[in-house]
Design a binder for these strands. Structure first.
Lengths: 337, 337
DNA sequence: TTGTACGCGTTATCAT
DNA sequence: ATGATAACGCGTACAA
């Protein structure tokens, strides 16, 4: 059986209160007794029982990180950065891969809240829906602990949003193609999430601002598996086969853009002369294909850092901004002129 | 303040013991009282306090998943599968990205053990070293909870290994190239971990078995960042520039193999005619490059499933196999003849 | 089948 | 500065 605070107090010849003070770095301990207690702790390699401690402090310094699928490139990176930031600040991470189903998510959250996490971090804009009722679970969770949103925004007490300005980024990306003389730009997307909607609006706005209001036939929603490039490629092939002509493709995601690169190669199209392509997320995939993919960097590392700082502030009782917005940046590589 | 078991017991007109029995599914409760208690629990949406429960049960049904970097393709997938399996069996996952430094790992493990996880899962063969003293921390951890190794093997009480037969896989991969008439096969690797060593042995054995004992100049260790394809490409370029000729490349990792594809393209080499390439892990990257990469599938999903089954058995007090070995499989794509 | 009483290992609030 | 002692909320012998 592991030692308790009582054992230590006896061996050190003090009361458990004193041991507890030493443990928690209280000022009110004479230096000599502190040293004595510490030496005993050291000697017996004593560690306080986490559960008992949790009972006292109402916290185990743990936060729940929720994401749909942690093997997705973007989400995986986000989870990694978050875990690092949290650990550096003394918090551990309970990882939950909730998938996309609403009821699964709800039960997951209920479970995780019952484990007394100090906060919930929802990674990915798919956690906030356009349908307001579907966001009820966020409000509910926010009633118990601060809820942090990464890459999404939701206005509600005790929820804090950190995101990239996807609207502007897409506006800029689209405009850059149009300015280069490409006005038949296909828009490919695979999510109607918060940020998915923003991106699409950015594309539309850019088209409109260049008097290309007839963009409807260019917009295509892909709802297949995003990690199967081949399926994506045939999806694009079908669009072309149905008669749509295009000399540019903007994708809401690097995976989709890789599919576009493959499509061009299959059809003997030169990149970027015959077909220019822009992806999103600036993931590692951008440098795996040939030619390398131009993509929007959404400052993930900055976002995760900011999110954790905000969280620490909130947990510390400070007043923190409900929304932190970063600007994306177009990283030019070889798939654009 | 949240309700306690006392509140529920009062409202239901029973003792806390009965509530506890209902909560934990004891048989010894009259059906009518069970229903009464359940209805009260339902009505007030009562959830037992996790900390108090942990104290009683000495467990919060949580396991620690350790990996060097959860944004790595391979590790990310492993973590994802593990989390899913564990959750399906009522366990939550504490994620720890420990990096590669030994002392960091040790302190991480100490911390996580103090949080009373039920088990530790070490993901990736880099957790077991060739230097025996460096594995002391595993033995130590195994003294407290069962330690599960994914993709590595270590013989020690209370540690259970699940892995792929990397030796055979590499032997087979190398042999397939030699049989295709390519006997100058470069071997690229980036890790001296347990499985890294096995892979290299497999390559050497295959070369030897075909009387190609002079393989030393073909073996190259890359110690740069594995997620920067360009650095990998120049690494290979240097090898070629220094005068080594080769018509095949086998890499211990898909990332390295992608670098090889890029190298071929930079030098106008035809794949697979001028240069055949085989990667390892059968990750998503294999279908992102052109031509698509031949790679070894190490049955990750089978491994993670088996690992969790073993863990459940161990926690249930059953006798379980200390080592479970799967066979890898060469997935032929377009970078090999 | 049900209830009582105690133990679990802390933190926190009082005194001293 | 230090020590008793009361929570904290649950599980579980043991008793009834």
């Amino acid at each position: 059986m592991a030692l308790t605070i009582y054992d230590i107090s006896k061996k050190a010849g003090v009361s458990i209160a004193t041991v507890s003070r030493v443990l928690n770095g209280s000022e009110n301990v004479r230096e000599s007794t502190r040293e004595k207690v510490l030496s005993v702790i050291e000697k017996y390699d004593y560690t306080p029982n986490a559960f008992a401690r949790g009972m006292g402090l109402h916290s185990l310094r743990t936060v729940g990180i929720l994401c749909a699928n942690s093997s997705d490139q973007f989400l995986a990176r986000a989870v990694y950065y978050l875990e690092q930031e949290l650990h550096a600040n003394g918090y551990e991470s309970l990882l939950c891969c909730t998938g996309y189903d609403l009821s699964d998510r709800q039960s997951y959250i209920r479970l995780i809240l019952s484990k007394k996490v100090d906060s919930l971090i929802l990674v990915g804009s798919n956690y906030v829906s356009n349908v307001e009722e579907e966001n009820a679970y966020i409000r509910e969770a926010a009633g118990q602990v601060p809820v942090m949103l990464l890459n999404a925004s939701y206005n509600c007490p005790n929820v804090y949003s950190t995101l990239c300005n996807d609207y502007s980024s897409m506006f800029e990306a689209t405009s850059s193609l149009i300015r280069a003389g490409i006005d038949d730009v296909l828009y490919l997307y695979d999510s109607n999430s918060y940020s998915g909607t923003k991106k699409l609006s950015g594309y539309k706005a850019a088209m409109k601002s260049y008097k290309l209001a007839d963009y409807a036939p260019f917009i295509h929603y892909y709802d297949g598996p995003t990690d199967q490039i081949r399926t994506i490629t045939s999806f694009i092939q079908e669009i072309a086969d149905r008669g749509t002509t295009f000399h540019g493709i903007i994708a809401s995601d690097d995976n989709l853009a890789i599919g576009a690169v493959k499509y061009a190669q299959n059809n003997g199209l030169k990149i970027p002369e015959d077909l220019a392509i822009i992806g999103y997320n600036n993931s590692m995939l951008t440098t795996c294909c040939t030619p390398e993919l131009t993509s929007v960097d959404n400052r993930l590392e900055n976002q995760t850092h900011q999110l954790v700082q905000t969280l620490l502030g909130v947990l510390g009782g400070e007043e923190m901004p409900a929304e932190s917005v970063f600007s994306g940046k177009l990283i030019k590589r070889a798939t654009t002129p």
